[in-house]
Amino acid sequence: MASFIGRLFGGGGRAAAPVQEASGPPERKTSRTAALFAVSEPGRPLWTPRDYQALAREGFQRNAVVHRCVRLVAEAAASVPLLLKAGRREFDTHPLLSLIARPSPREAGTAFLEAVYGHLLVAGNAYVEAVSLDGTPRELYALRPDRMQVVPGPDGWAAAYDYRAGHSAVRFRQEGEVPPILHLRLFHPADDHYGLSPMEAAAVALDIHNASAGWNKALLDNAARPSGALIYAGPDGANLTDAQFERLKVELEAQFQGAANAGRPLLLEGGLDWRQLSLTPAEMDFAEARASAMREIALAFGVPPLMLGLPGDSTYANYAEANRAFWRQTVLPLVRRTAQAMAHWLAPAYGGGLSLDPDLDSIEALAGEREALWRRITAADFLSADEKREAVGYGKGDRR
């Protein structure tokens, strides 16, 4: 049993069994606008409208703020334990919990979820492949978003997914009780099939921050001072000869360019005069523009700037308050929507009626809130024991 990636790159193991077709009802309801969604030829793959490689390279790989934001959100979300329930009943052990805890022989559950959340934040899309045997999911794999294409069906919704790596490709048809691909995407107001990455919303701030870093590097490489012009005032308007020009150019590059030559005085002779052309960093308000760009990037990812050590942020009184806001406003909504999608996708293989929810009691950043809730509920003498259990999230007779 192996995923498409394992088969494509020579991984051994047993191939997944063919996905069984689900017997649908004789009549199917559909939206009256469904035909309008089919804006392309049915069965034709639609390429993602953005450059994932550029987002990954310019954002996650080259920008420290983006890198930290993605790591912070993905690692926090992947660390949240999930509770499996069927109605009010909570399961301590279950095949679905075991599958999420160990999705494949090569990967632990935390690493798998971190990859899923990371793809979602960088690309706005995340794809999970379920490898089934006898109709039961046995392994889960996070697939790269840049290799996946949506294949719309006659009604415009995804009927299949094409995954390409090099010259090889495989088509995953969305059939069976558990379709082979789960597509997670962030909301995009102008695209029916692909999600919007936070990096795209912060593209201007990201470019400003990267450009400012490049400007700093170039400044050090060019004598750590703004550029200017050497003006030659020769007798009777004469110009430098070719030999003089080349000699001057070589001397400037050898003796005054680079960080090692920063601050070296410039000796001018023969009617040469230096005039500064560019603005100084203070005149450009360089530092404030760079700090503002960093705050905008953090805002797009939902990370309080205080948690990144960014200057000039006074939104939260202290780090603990910023951390609580980070978990409540960014991490938990992401975990809930992902857990709900995975439960809806995989539950039919186990009889249905299952739900996945984050275990709030295990989140250290929210311990103060939970403690305050427990105190208030304990002090409410007008509530019965069962009512108190329900108020803090436990059902009657539940055992933790």
Score class of each variant (00 low, 15 high):
Phe4Val: 15
Gly6Asn: 08
Gly10Lys: 01
Gly13Glu: 00
Glu21Trp: 12
Gly24Leu: 14
Arg28Tyr: 01
Arg28Thr: 06
Ser31His: 09
Ala34Thr: 04
Ala38Gln: 10
Gly43Arg: 03
Arg50Cys: 09
Ala56Arg: 14
Asn63Leu: 04
Asn63Gln: 07
Ala64Thr: 13
Val65His: 01
Val66Pro: 11
Val73Thr: 06
Ala78Met: 07
Val80Gln: 03
Leu82Phe: 02
Leu83Tyr: 00
Ala86Tyr: 11
Phe91Val: 09
Phe91Ala: 13
Thr93Glu: 04
Leu97His: 00
Ile100Trp: 03
Ala101Asn: 09
Glu107Gln: 13
Phe112Ala: 15
Gly118Lys: 09
Ala126Pro: 14
Tyr127Met: 04
Ser132Gly: 06
Asp134Asn: 07
Gly135Asn: 02
Gly135Glu: 05
Ala142Glu: 06
Ala142Tyr: 07
Arg144Ile: 11
Pro145Phe: 02
Asp146Ser: 13
Asp146Arg: 15
Gln149His: 13
Val151Leu: 06
Pro152Ala: 01
Ala160Glu: 03
Tyr161Thr: 00
Arg164Val: 12
Ala165Met: 08
Val170Asn: 01
Val170Leu: 04
Arg173Thr: 09
Glu175Ile: 15
Pro180Asp: 07
Pro180Tyr: 01
Leu182Phe: 01
His183Tyr: 08
Arg185Lys: 13
Asp192Leu: 10
Ser197Asn: 06
Ser197Thr: 03
Pro198Gln: 04
Pro198Thr: 02
Glu200Asn: 12
Ala201Gly: 10
Ala202Leu: 05
Val204Ile: 10
Ile208Gln: 07
Gly214Met: 09
Trp215Cys: 05
Asp221Ser: 10
Asn222His: 14
Arg225Trp: 08
Gly237Met: 05
Gly237Tyr: 05
Leu240Trp: 04
Ala243Trp: 00
Phe256Thr: 14
Asn261Phe: 13
Asn261Tyr: 13
Pro265Ile: 03
Leu268Glu: 02
Leu277Met: 11
Leu279Thr: 15
Pro281Tyr: 04
Ala282Cys: 12
Glu283Cys: 13
Met284His: 00
Glu288Thr: 09
Arg295Glu: 07
Ala298Val: 09
Leu299Asp: 14
Ala300Thr: 10
Pro305Glu: 00
Pro305Ala: 05
Gly309Thr: 15
Ser314Ala: 12
Ala320Glu: 08
Ala322Leu: 11
Ala322Cys: 12
Ala325Leu: 05
Phe326Asp: 14
Leu334His: 10
Leu334Asn: 12
Ala341Leu: 07
Ala349Met: 02
Gly352Pro: 05
Leu354Asn: 02
Ser355Ile: 06
Ser362Gly: 06
Ala367His: 05
Arg370Pro: 14
Glu371Ala: 13
Glu371Lys: 15
Arg375Asp: 08
Thr378Arg: 10
Ala379Arg: 12
Glu387Cys: 03
Arg389Ile: 04
Gly393Asn: 10
Tyr394Gln: 10
Lys396Arg: 12
